[in-house]
Design a protein around this nucleic acid. Sequence first.
DNA 1: CTTACCTGAGTCGGCTCACC
DNA 2: GGTGAGCCGACTCAGGTAAG
Length: 255
Amino acid sequence: MNEIIHPQISYFVMKECSPSWEIQQQTISFYDLVFVLEGSADYIVNGEAHHVQKGDLLFIKPQSVRSATTTGMVCAAVDFLLTANEKFELPTVSHWEDFTDIERMLKEINYDWLQKKEGYKMKCQALLILVLHKLLYEKPHQKINIHVEVIKRYIVDHYDQKLTVSTLARVANISTVYCGALFKMTEGTSISAFINQVRIHKAASLLESGEYNVGEVAERTGFKDVYYFSSTFKRLVGVSPKTYQNRSPVIYKRL
DNA sequence: CTTACCTGAGTCGGCTCACC
DNA sequence: GGTGAGCCGACTCAGGTAAG
């Protein structure tokens, strides 16, 4: 699957489909995404029947044969194309417990698509990429834990400062031990590992910039000890900070 | 001389588990 | 959702080597 794709929206609609609505059997030449916001519908995709209802996402690939009927449904549908070397894969049907974010973005696309003001295609394309990113990288049944979100955002905003679990627990207003356990359970990684990951990602971009030496990068990313920074960087990235910097193209030259 | 890196010892905070 | 205890690994510090 591509890390970045450039979907060209050919058709977008957000509408209420009456019981008389139907799609005749046809082979499509585009990607078709249908998000059911209310009601239900019966789709047949490549000979396979799918009953979709509120919260269901239907994903149909190009060259698929599809037909559909409904007893009444509110849905958002988007048809899009990718360039020849781009690919996008999702299950034909997936169910989303919490689709408020997706619905909000689809409504935003609808708002701009209907107005067709200058630059609307660029904005709709960007919003569709956000929707596709969410569909691809978030699990449909994944519940976002508000405490963990608060902790992660605090870490990203304060990675250059001394961060302890007790500080983060206070920020999230939960106990220290529970904080660590909750984070591990939700994210699958420990808090300290997450902090290191954020710091090393930031360090890598500072090194790439060529503006700072290894010691300055260590200081700017919250590492008190440049040697500890160096060993952590090497453990996570695979090469020492200096080697990494030397391999990166120069963006800024130090004076 | 400066910078980067390595190693070993000691300390302390975080993680896990059992339990409430 | 929270606590206590024990273990372990992350981290610090000091001392050293190597390369430019």
